[in-house]
Write a protein that binds this DNA or RNA. Structure first.
Length: 665
DNA sequence: CAATAAGGTATTTTT
DNA sequence: TACCTTATTG
């Protein structure tokens, strides 16, 4: 409890009714959550195994677990649940898989898998565009709308089509004995609603819930929380409506208001003291977000001093913008001996990073770029995981299709089409169908031979997986399929092949690590399930320590902070984005800008280009309307700044002496 | 089956 | 403009 301000203390010690903590940016929300966990355990209110802290990201979960365990002895922290919604959901489903109609070796389909399945199904229905249908279906699932309800309420042609596909999709993946990411929340809710004893079991086990980033919960997650916390409402929800930037993905910031309706006893605590930024940055952020309607008024303040004004950097074009930002970083490096890791370049869309990457490379500035394809989206990782998934769950047709001809086994599309037909007729999985005599009769002797070899091999592995160490199984898969050679043959450069194989061996390491961890991760199936939900951030911790400039989208920057932030591309059509200018969306765009501004601790530079080529055509663009919403007295326009000869000389002096010092090091 | 050409399409994406 | 996906062809 040391070092907590009065509001934080109130949040930590409040019990007896549900608590909503409105935690402004940089107000110490993680601190409140971890301290509250520790406090409850120390006071004997609940033991660690009765408390669950729920986050959205693995990263947040990791950080929270670390910080909570620092406050407690190992013994006290034993059994504490700190996990993402999805991991908690998985654990609940695992325990009750049978009742939900799944075998306990069920697979988890990632976003790409479900997209591929849906696309295939859409194709059969003679539908070309499956992408928006996927959105509709996912939104339904996030809203806990069943197939039946969706079918009834579908109005537009798109919705009616989506409802048909929704039904087919669910039937399909059920046949695969697979669930998708959305199901990891949907199924526990369904379980709780249909089986009171299951609900009671979990309510009894998890007596107190702490929810992080509460504004990002969707309707289904809200239902989940409400069921689990029960009428007791033993929960603390921590969130910030001003940082709700995922509405487009189904998040319901209005869940904050809903909490008050559902729990009249709700206690609300506001955290307004910011421990991150200087006053001018905060006042600017406050002014900007003040243009959004608010349920609860909030005014961030800090004692970190007034600080420097926010620099506004108008640029001729994007190239000019990148040059200026990079030269500013270099200048600060030499003049103030700043570390590269103190800088972040934030943008609205991923494509904006390209120019900056190029320039940073040219200037030998180390940088790290987050976003883009994650470890799990890499083809080589997906391949190996598909093999493992198939071994654990031979009904997983998605996995079967992915790897049946990777590496090439000379099993072509026509063979697979016939296999698909046959499996459909016999109502069985592809792998099962492949082994049936009836199928063998339909294809050539050569094809039969190839299929047989594959099935025989896989059977051996399935058998081995029963008893052998999972790590061994993975290694065997990789060597048996000759993945190394396949990589060498299919990659453009040997270097690329090497990099990919490195990823492959990381999977092995990781399986070993999860297996050694124990705790319900004994079987291959358990391990794979966890693997598809956990990220790989910790895999190269040395990379994390690197002194590198951070490049990321505004979405990716939430929760982070940097001494110096460059918010680039502050233009109409970009931020706010051209597709998000209606009454409602513009508010989320404003929150996005707010998130960007509040990442900065000391220095904030906002840049925009006056011309930008859009889709190949050069066009003049307008500065963002959000610039007009910032307090002019805290802004310093680069193009209007007058530098005196004395200042210039001073800068040069500092520059030279630091350069000498750097070279001397 | 692989290489090539043409075409279509460009926000954000915690799991 | 630059990318990725799809269709075609040998």
């Amino acid at each position: 409890m040391q070092g907590l301000n009065p509001e934080q203390q109130a949040a930590v010690t409040h019990l007896g009714s549900p608590l909503l903590v409105l935690a402004g940016a940089g107000s110490g929300k993680t601190r409140v959550i971890t301290q509250k966990i520790a406090w409850m355990i120390r006071k004997g209110v609940h033991s660690a195994d009765q408390i669950a802290a729920i986050t959205f990201t693995n990263k947040a979960a990791r950080e929270m677990r670390e910080r909570a365990s620092q406050l407690l002895t190992k013994e006290e922290a034993k059994g504490l649940t700190v996990s993402t919604f999805h991991t908690l959901g998985l654990n609940i489903i695992k325990r009750e898989a049978k009742r939900l109609g799944y075998k306990n070796n069920f697979s988890i389909l990632d976003a790409q898998d479900s997209a591929a399945i849906l696309k295939e199904l859409a194709h059969k229905e003679d539908v070309e565009e499956a992408e928006n249908l996927r959105w509709i279906i996912s939104r339904w699932k996030n809203d806990f709308i069943s197939v039946e309800q969706a079918t009834l309420q579908a109005n537009t042609t798109d919705e009616k089509l989506a409802a048909i596909l929704y039904e087919k999709y669910q039937r399909q993946i059920k046949a695969y004995n697979a669930v998708d990411f959305d199901d990891l929340i949907v199924l526990p809710v369904r379980l709780f609603e249909q089986h009171p004893d299951a609900l009671q079991f979990w309510q009894n086990k998890l007596r107190y819930l702490l929810i992080d980033e509460y504004q990002d919960t969707n309707a289904c997650q809200y239902r989940f929380i409400r069921l689990l916390s029960g009428i007791r409402g033993a929960l603390t929800a921590v969130g910030d409506d001003d940082q709700s930037i995922y509405a487009w993905r189904g998040a319901r910031p209005e869940n904050i208001a809903q909490l008050q309706k559902d729990y009249p006893m709700l206690k609300v605590v506001k955290l307004e003291q910011n421990y991150r930024s200087t006053a001018r940055i905060l006042q600017s952020a406050n002014k900007l977000i003040g243009n959004n309607p608010h349920l609860f008024e909030k005014n961030l303040w800090s004692t970190l001093g007034e600080g420097d004004p926010i620099r506004i950097m108008p640029c001729r074009n994007p190239e000019h913008e990148a040059e200026k930002v990079v030269s500013e970083i270099l200048k600060a490096r030499f003049r103030d001996r700043a570390a590269f890791k103190d800088f972040a370049i934030l943008y609205r869309g991923n494509h904006q990073s390209r120019l900056f990457e190029k320039l940073l490379r040219e200037n030998n500035i180390t940088y790290k770029i987050s976003g883009g394809t994650s470890f799990f989206e890499r083809a080589e990782v997906k391949d190996i995981l598909a093999y493992l998934r198939l071994i654990a769950n031979p009904d997983d047709d998605a996995a079967f299709l992915r790897i049946i001809n990777t590496p090439k086994r000379e099993i072509g599309t026509s063979t697979l089409e016939k296999l698909g037909e046959y499996a459909h007729e016999r109502h069985t999985s592809l792998f099962n169908a492949a082994q049936e005599l009836g199928f063998a009769q339909r294809i050539s002797a050569k094809a039969t031979q190839r299929i047989e070899t594959f099935c025989f091999w896989l059977h051996e592995l399935i058998r081995a997986a029963d008893s052998a160490d999972p790590t061994k199984i993975v290694q065997q898969v990789i060597t048996d399929i000759g993945y190394d050679d396949w990589m060498k043959n299919t990659c453009n450069t040997p270097k690329q092949a090497e990099a990919r194989m490195k990823n492959v061996w990381e999977i092995v390491d990781w399986v070993r690590k999860l297996h050694d961890d124990g705790a319900g991760k004994e079987t291959l199936s358990d391990i794979i399930a966890h693997m598809s939900l956990v990220d790989m951030l910790e895999r190269n911790s040395e990379e994390k320590e690197q002194d590198a400039v951070s490049l990321m989208t505004l979405h990716g920057a939430k929760g982070l902070e940097f001494p110096s932030v460059f918010l680039i591309g502050m233009e109409e059509e970009l931020l706010p984005h051209a597709n998000s200018v209606d009454e409602h969306s513009i508010q989320e765009e404003r929150r996005l800008a707010y998130v960007g501004i509040t990442r900065a601790q000391k220095n904030l530079t906002i840049s925009y280009a006056k011309t930008r080529s859009r889709y190949g055509e050069a066009s003049i663009v307008e500065p963002s309307r959000f610039l007009d919403e910032l307090p002019p007295e805290h802004l310093e326009w680069e193009d209007k700044k007058v530098i005196t000869p004395e200042q210039r000389q001073e800068t040069a002096r500092a520059y030279v002496s630091n350069l000498q010092a750097l070279l001397g090091d």
